[in-house]
Simulated scan of single mutants.
Amino acid sequence: MERKLELYEKKILKDKEFPIQLMVNRCQNKGKYFGVHWHEQIELHYVVRGQTVLRLEQEEMVAGEGALVIVNSNVLHEGYCRGGVMETMVAIFDMEDFSREFADKNIIFCPLISGDDEISRIMLRIHEEYMRKEIGYQLVCKGELLKLVTYLARNDAVEMLSEEDVLKRRKKLERLNTVYQYIENHYTEVISNQELAELVHLSEGRFCHIFKESAGVSPLQYIKEIRLNKAMKLLKKEGFTATEAAEAVGFLDYNNFGRMFRKYFGCTPTEVKKK
C-alpha cells in the first residue's frame, strides 16, 4: 500500500476571535524535528533558547537565540536541530485575518532577522503569555502579533508579489508535491533524475534546477537524506540491526551507508543501537 505524503498542509484556523496557531518547539537531539511542507499562512519561528536551522527552499537559515525566522506564504520549509537544548516560539496565521491592506500587497518579509530588540520584546511577551495561559492571554498575543506585523511591514518587507507571481509559486509547489510523493513511495528503489522529470513533464535539466531551487539539495541528495532518516527510525526500533536497516531503506553497500550516516547524523549506526 502506498504511503500518502502531502506536502501541502491545509491549516484551518476556525476561531475568528483568535485566528492564530501558537506552539512551542523543543528539541535537543540532532536531526530533523519537522518535515518539509508548505501552506498559505505565514509562519514565525522565534528562538528562545539555543539554535535552530530552518531550510526555506534553497536557503538554510541558522538562527541563534533572539533571532526570528519568517516563513513566507507558499514556501517549502523544514526544521533541524544541531544538537543541544533548543526552544522556539512558533506563530502561524493568515495575513487576511490580520490586515486586508497587507494581504492585498502580498508582502514578502526578510526570512531571517537577528538582533532586533523590538521583535524580541514582542515575541518574548507572546511566549510568556502562551506559557502561562492566564485569562485574556489570547487577546494579548493577538495584540502583540498585530504590532509585530505592522513593524515587519514597515521595516523588513523585501518584496511585494503580483497575483501572477503568487499563482506561479503555487503551481511550482504542486508539481513538486507529485515528485515528493513518488519518492516517499519508491525511495527503496533506484530512482533517476530523468524518471522524476518525466513525472512532471519537464526536461531533466529544468527539473533539477527547480527541485534544487525549492528543496535546497539535488533530487538524488534528497533521496539519500530520506533513506538516512528512515534508517535512523528503524535503528531506534527493536529487532533491526544496522545492516538490516541499511538494506531496508535501499542501501546496497553497507560501508557507504555507514560513512554517509556518520556524516549526516554525527554518529555511527552502531552507536545509535547502543544508545
Results as ranks from 00 to 15, higher is better:
Arg170Val: 14
Glu60Gln: 10
Lys233Gln: 12
Ala248Gln: 13
Phe18Asn: 01
Glu189Arg: 00
Lys273Val: 00
His45Arg: 03
Ala215Tyr: 05
Arg259His: 13
Ala242Trp: 04
Phe251Arg: 05
Cys110Gly: 15
Ala231Trp: 01
Glu101Arg: 13
Lys224Leu: 12
Phe18Asp: 06
Val90Ile: 10
Tyr180Leu: 15
Tyr254Asp: 05
Ala63Pro: 14
Asn177Ile: 04
Gly84Gln: 03
Phe109Tyr: 05
Asn74Lys: 07
Lys10Phe: 15
Leu56Glu: 06
Tyr222Phe: 09
Glu144Gln: 14
Lys212Cys: 08
Tyr33Phe: 04
Thr178Asp: 15
Tyr187Gln: 01
Arg132Glu: 11
Arg227Lys: 11
Val53His: 13
His209Ala: 13
Lys32Trp: 13
Ile20Trp: 03
Arg170Phe: 10
Asn155Ile: 10
Phe18Trp: 09
Glu195Arg: 08
Asn229Thr: 10
Lys230Leu: 05
Arg169Thr: 02
Glu204Tyr: 02
Glu129Met: 01
Ile210Phe: 11
Asp15Cys: 08
Lys274Met: 06
Arg259Glu: 12
Lys224Glu: 14
Pro111Ser: 11
Thr188Met: 05
Phe98Glu: 03
Lys14Arg: 07
Leu176Gly: 01
Asn25Gln: 04
Leu152Ser: 01
Cys141Arg: 09
Tyr33Trp: 01
Gln194Gly: 15
Val190Thr: 04
Leu196Asn: 03
Pro219Val: 03
Ala91Lys: 02
Ile126Ala: 10
Asn255Thr: 06
Ser114Trp: 00
Val217Ala: 04
Gly83Trp: 00
Gly239Tyr: 09
Phe207Leu: 00
Gln41Leu: 15
Asn256Asp: 10
Phe265Tyr: 06
Ser218Leu: 11
Leu176Asn: 02
Val200Gln: 08
Gly83Gln: 01
Arg100Cys: 02
Lys236Ala: 08
Phe207His: 01
Glu213Met: 12
Gly35Lys: 03
Gly266Glu: 10
Glu101Trp: 15
Met260Ile: 02
Glu144Trp: 15
